[in-house]
């Protein structure tokens, strides 16, 4: 095949020639007017129309087909511009939802956050010490009494059990006293969360203030009543960065991404002037919205 013939078969050349021809047609068909009434079908657009066709039909378009694609594109462009001029895009919920989604994606991309420095992480930790607090740990034993098993004797039995516990003879094991239960009797360095998980939050709160090396109770849980003896309590304390770096980084990233997204939105909002008129209708009680 000669170079000239190969060149003649080169689709891009076809497009360029076709484009030139169409552009000519276009100039003849439209009277020159203000900017915005100009429709240019670029080489890039021609390529993309032809490529879409090829993906669908598994061959390039014929010249006639390409001309049809171009004319259809021009038709779409003319109608869309007119629709926008008439404001049809403004009250169409589908168009608005679509535009909003695409903007959300754009804002997300702009909101990508670079990895934090140690100083940033330390600052975050200083502002949110509670979220990373090293929990207090309590070593204790609990002796259980089930109200449903004691019925009317409950008050008496509680007092007796309390007296027995407070005057334990040496060597006596409190874990053998009270009612048997699936609940464990002895807890070693249990965290606040663990205690809450097993006994519920009311019990966990009482345990947190129970005196050390003395019997407290009865303390109520979802299961019944307990006497509790704390033998050691390591108080909670704020964490050092090296202990919780991964968690701080995770929270920092999560916060900064949300913040960057919101900042991008706020920047757009600032370019607008928003006026909300007083509600013309009665509004519902706030509880109705829950």
């Amino acid at each position: 095949m000669s170079r000239a013939r190969r060149l003649l078969r080169e689709p891009l050349l076809h497009f360029l020639l076709l484009g030139a021809a169409l552009f000519g047609v276009h100039r003849l068909a439209t009277a020159p007017s203000a900017e915005g009434s100009r429709i240019v079908v670029s080489v890039g657009k021609l390529r993309s129309l032809a490529e879409t066709f090829r993906m669908t039909w598994q061959r390039p378009p014929t010249e006639a087909e390409l001309r049809g694609l171009v004319m259809d594109h021009v038709r779409e462009e003319v109608l869309v511009r007119e629709a926008v001029r008439l404001g049809l895009d403004r009250d169409d919920p589908v168009v608005r939802r679509r535009l909003r989604t695409r903007m959300d994606v754009l804002l997300d991309d702009t909101a990508a956050v670079s990895p934090p420095t140690d100083a940033q992480l330390q600052a975050y930790l200083d502002v949110h010490p509670g979220a990373f607090r090293q929990e207090s740990r309590t070593t204790f034993v609990q002796v259980f009494l089930s109200p449903e098993r004691h019925g009317e004797r409950l008050e008496t039995d509680l007092r007796r059990l309390q007296a027995s516990l407070q005057h334990l003879v040496p060597g006596a094991d409190p874990l053998r006293m009270g009612d048997s239960s699936m609940l464990e009797g002895r807890f070693d360095a249990a965290s606040e969360r663990e205690v809450e998980r097993i006994f519920g939050d009311a019990f966990a709160r009482e345990l947190a203030t129970a005196p050390v090396n003395d019997w407290t109770g009865p303390v109520r849980s979802g299961y019944g009543l307990h006497f509790v003896r704390v033998t050691e309590r390591v108080p909670g304390r704020p964490a050092r960065l090296e202990e919780v770096r991964e968690a701080v980084q995770r929270e920092w990233l999560s916060q900064e991404t949300a913040r960057a997204r919101e900042a991008a939105y706020q920047a757009l909002l600032r370019r607008m002037k928003v006026t909300v008129e007083p509600p013309p209708v009665e509004t519902a009680d706030p509880r109705a919205g829950r």
Binding site: D157, L161, S164, A172, M177, G178, D179
Partner: peptide, 8 residues
């Protein structure tokens, strides 16, 4: 039984 277990 747990009555027995109360310690005495």
């Amino acid at each position: 039984t747990v009555g027995l277990l109360l310690g005495a």
